[in-house]
Design a protein around this nucleic acid. Structure first.
Length: 288
DNA sequence: AGCCAGGACAAGT
DNA sequence: ACTTGTCATGGC
């Protein structure tokens, strides 16, 4: 089944939102669109001003999935959240204003819990480029063909917990995930066995959901907060990776205002993107 | 060619 | 409760 949708979004920056490091499965095409697979649905998405165009392809088994529906994508892209209001709050702090103003169109996506859980276990002590390539290969080897993008590349779904959990470390070897391999398999098996349950986690408050995550081997404070934020839409999650630690030390020595605690993770994404962008600009300057 | 990366963990203070 | 060494791999 194929379907096209349009959505209205403002403020919104599709490219920055998909490529800022919160999601690893969107690929820029030469025509300015991005291709990816979300819940088994092969999608191509592009932005034209305030309009978002979506081309969806769902094979028979998922043609009835809610991921083929407009409401799903409105939620996925966080278009139901009043970002203008959040921006007004964040801009009360001068440094946070600077971060927001650098890329105000970034939104925190509501991604699939299980995919986020596995993906951020892969992410530990790893760089975004390599995380993307590892996950791409994982999907190619163990996922299912979900469709093709407009230039003919086959798009693969994220492998199910059932599939991933049935693998051995030898099976995973081609991914070169190093010491993370046991954690990846273990996490998939926890989901498969119901010990880690999306429904249960959603019913918990952020603090308890975080504690639950910390019981999983390979999941520490940073990954736990990424899953809370990106996979469970618990916006209190505030992942502290090396960039954020650097930003807190250099840009926010007095900490962040208490007023943002409930949505700290959304603010975090502006800080993260600002910090990484500033660093790459500085590097360019040195090399010239 | 090294340094670094959306870190976690165990062992040691 | 904090600090430190170690871990596999490849991007840059």
């Amino acid at each position: 089944m194929d379907k096209e949708l349009t959505l209205q979004a403002s403020p919104f920056d599709l490219g920055a939102t998909l490529m800022c490091g919160q999601a690893f499965r969107w690929t820029p095409l030469t025509n300015g669109a991005y291709s990816g697979v979300v819940r088994g649905v092969a999608a191509e998405i592009r932005q034209d001003g305030k309009t978002i165009h979506l081309k969806l392809h769902g094979k028979k088994d998922i043609a009835e999935s809610d991921a083929m529906e407009e409401d799903f994508w409105r939620s996925y892209l966080a278009l139901d959240i009043d970002y203008a209001k959040l921006h007004r709050l964040y801009r009360k702090d001068p440094m946070l204003k600077k971060c927001v103003d650098f890329a105000p169109g970034i939104r925190v996506l509501r991604q699939d819990f299980y995919e986020t859980f596995i993906s951020f276990i892969v992410s530990q002590n790893n760089n975004i480029s390599r995380i993307r390539s590892i996950i791409a290969k994982m999907c190619e080897l163990f996922g299912d063909a979900a469709g093709k993008d407009s230039i003919g590349n086959t798009l693969y779904s994220f492998p199910s917990a059932k599939k991933l959990g049935s693998l051995t470390e030898d099976d995973l070897a081609p991914l070169k995930t190093g010491y993370r391999a046991p954690s990846i398999l273990g996490a998939a098996r926890l989901v498969l066995g119901g010990n880690i349950s999306e429904n249960e986690l959603r019913s918990l408050n952020a603090e308890d959901a975080r504690k639950k995550h910390l019981t999983v081997h390979g999941v520490g404070p940073k990954v736990a907060d990424c899953v809370l934020l990106f996979g469970l839409a618990k916006f209190e999650g505030f992942p502290k990776d090396v960039w954020i630690k650097r930003a807190m030390a250099e840009l926010f020595p007095d900490g962040l205002p208490d007023s943002i605690i409930a949505t700290a993770g959304i603010a975090q994404q502006y800080i993260f993107h600002y910090m990484r962008s500033e660093a790459s600009l500085a590097k360019l300057k040195v090399e010239s």
